[in-house]
């Protein structure tokens, strides 16, 4: 009988911790030791991939991995150990503002001479940079809005209604061809990339895993609902101007109509979402639970911090003329012939 399952393939391990988690998923070995978890660099490939493997069981799972492992107590214990290190590092390293207004003030100002990834791509980006960028971001955009949907049952009233409305927009307002994840897949097709979910996980550097793991961490824990809302607000606030620069990059390089449309759509949509999230979601949540103010500010700070980690690493490689991926895309494209 034809196997209709299409879960992503397990990625290659990147060290003792991710290797042990993977072995556990395959049912062939023990979970990582406490010493290995404690010794792994917190923002590094090994720890972040291990965490990514744990989290992905809550989204689409992996081929050959029993779906029930999502709630395996032993695996959850390991996940909790990884999360303690990740969250502890973020609380120490991400610059902390005590109030939501202070945290948001920094990202509500547009730098005149911005030096971020979207500025680089607008001014100097070549098609190969855009392809690498899209391959990396596909780890989030092919499940766009999913990590944030988990916060809905933890909100009430005004905050819940507004959050659901924004998510409805992210999910295409009831139209499958307008789901943002679908618009991103169309962009990938324009760029000659493989739209298979999880296809570029092996190519994704640690800093990208950090960015996506942050969303899953905040989304999966009710205790971090304030941080999730702060994170979401940061994404929406920074998206509109960044998307305009990326749309310009797509136009200048002739990437294609769907590639332009994805970012054009986000310029307008996120200018609205920003307003709704700031006034209704954050405003409503603070009315209901004013003691979450510091958590919301932390969510903003942690998002800015992790995006900077990714941007700095990517730009260092690109400015040196190197690929920003763990495996160059051409090799990835060749590999795709025997994995699909």
């Amino acid at each position: 009988m034809e196997d209709l399952r299409d879960e992503p393939l397990l990625p290659a391990p990147r060290g003792p911790v991710s290797s042990a988690v993977q072995a556990h998923l395959r049912g062939t070995g023990p979970l990582p030791s406490e010493q290995d978890v404690d010794a792994a660099p917190v923002y590094g490939d090994d720890l972040q991939l291990a965490l990514y493997l744990c989290y992905e069981l809550h989204y689409r799972g992996f081929a050959g991995v029993a779906p029930g492992l999502e709630w395996d107590p032993e695996l959850l214990r390991t996940r909790a150990a990884l999360e303690r290190r990740f969250l502890g590092a973020l609380r120490a390293d991400a610059r902390r503002h005590d109030t939501v207004d202070d945290a948001l003030a920094g990202i509500l100002v547009e730098p005149v001479d911005g030096t971020g990834v979207s500025h680089f791509l607008r001014d100097k980006g070549e098609l190969w940079h855009l392809r690498e960028y899209a391959a990396l971001r596909s780890l989030y955009h092919l499940k766009e809005a999913d990590p944030h949907a988990w916060v809905l049952p933890r909100l009430r009233g005004r905050a819940k209604a507004a959050m659901a409305a924004v998510e409805f927009d992210e999910y295409g307002g009831g139209r499958a061809d307008r789901v943002h994840a679908r618009l991103f897949a169309d962009l990938m097709t324009d760029l000659g990339l493989d739209t298979t979910y999880g296809r570029y996980l092996d190519a994704a550097r640690a800093e990208l895993l950090v960015v996506v793991n942050l969303m899953s961490l905040f989304g999966l824990h009710r205790s971090l609902r304030g941080a999730l809302v702060g994170h979401f607000a940061t994404v929406e606030i920074t998206s509109s101007p960044g998307s305009r620069r990326l749309a310009e990059a797509m136009r200048r390089t002739g990437a294609g109509p769907a590639a332009e449309h994805f970012y054009d759509e986000h310029v307008e949509a996120d200018a609205v979402h920003e307003q709704v999230v700031r006034h209704e979601v954050i405003g409503g949540l603070l009315e209901d639970e004013p003691y979450l103010a510091q958590d919301i500010a932390f969510g903003v700070d942690a998002t800015v911090f992790t995006e900077d980690l990714l941007g700095d690493a990517l730009l260092a490689d690109w400015r040196a003329g190197r690929s920003g991926l763990r495996e160059p895309l051409d090799q990835v494209a060749q590999d795709s012939t025997h994995t699909s």
Binding site: L108, V109, E110, P111, V112, A165, F168, D169, G173, S240, P241, R244, V267, E268, A269, A271, V272, E274, Q275, V276
Partner: peptide, 26 residues
């Protein structure tokens, strides 16, 4: 859209829709 943001600063490049061009620049 369920909510629409109309530009009032007249700086939007997607006028009449807001594109966040009203933000302070630093």
């Amino acid at each position: 859209r369920f909510r629409v943001a109309l530009c009032t600063c007249r700086r939007s490049r997607r006028y009449p829709w807001c594109d966040t061009s009203h933000r302070d620049r630093a």
